[in-house]
Amino acid sequence: MALATTHASRSRATGASLRLSILLFVADPQWLVPSTIAPIVFGLVSFELFRNAGPYFLTYAILGAGMMSMWGQTLYGSGWATGADRQLGTLEPTIQAPTPYLYVVLGRIIWNVVAGLFGGGVVYVVVVLAAGGPPSLPNPLLFVVLFVFVMVTLAAVGVVFAAAFVYSRYAGFIQNIGEFAFYVGTGCMFPVVLLPFWTNPIALLFPPTWALDALRYASIPGYTGFGWGFGWDLLGAVATTAVYASIAGGVFTRVERHVLEVGDLSDY
């Protein structure tokens, strides 16, 4: 036989992982529930919850329900996909391939961001239909850009969290305990400033906290949030996202080393 192929192109591996995620999504009808049906329910519930919350209730409803339907998929979708790899026994051949696993996770993250945004879009349509018209946004374009940016910040944390699923088969268990604390703690449902003060420093370690605060600044006139303004929120979001993105490679290298030491890649 001919010589073995050269090292895999990392971007191709990410593309392949993205493609696989789409194929698996399409092949499995159960994903219709979190991606379509759940956002419809969240949108209707949120609309009823916020309908007496003042002039910007529609924005609150869209942000609350949108985040509810998007955050889990974006943040943990890739982790669950790795957990599924463990269960299917595909984690071993994937790790054994020449491409670092991080690039496989990136492909999944991209798909989860897209799927999350789709959920957000469904929420928007449902709330607008329920209200009989769109919300009044001071800057609709900025709203959309920041909405996507929030997804990116969730994805940045998601990459690091996905490493936990490679690290241990118990990651799902630990995640189940922590996910709603994370959901509330980063301000997905309502602003973090409403929580006890001691939770704020912890919340600020996560990029979505900053990004969501910035999004509320941009879309709700008179919003005060942490009180330091839109610019600092945006800067904090970019800086913390950069930190997560930059440590992801190192985290995965260490995690891969750990699982090769422990030898439990096929356990689930």
């Binding site: 192929t5 895999a8 591996a13 992982s17 493609r19 696989l20 391939a97 020449p98 491409t99 496989v104």
Partner: peptide
């Protein structure tokens, strides 16, 4: 599709 995925992870030219 299974093979295509792993072909890409192994960098087999498209």
């Amino acid at each position: 599709e299974n093979l295509r995925y792993f072909a890409d992870l192994y960098g087999i030219p498209p």
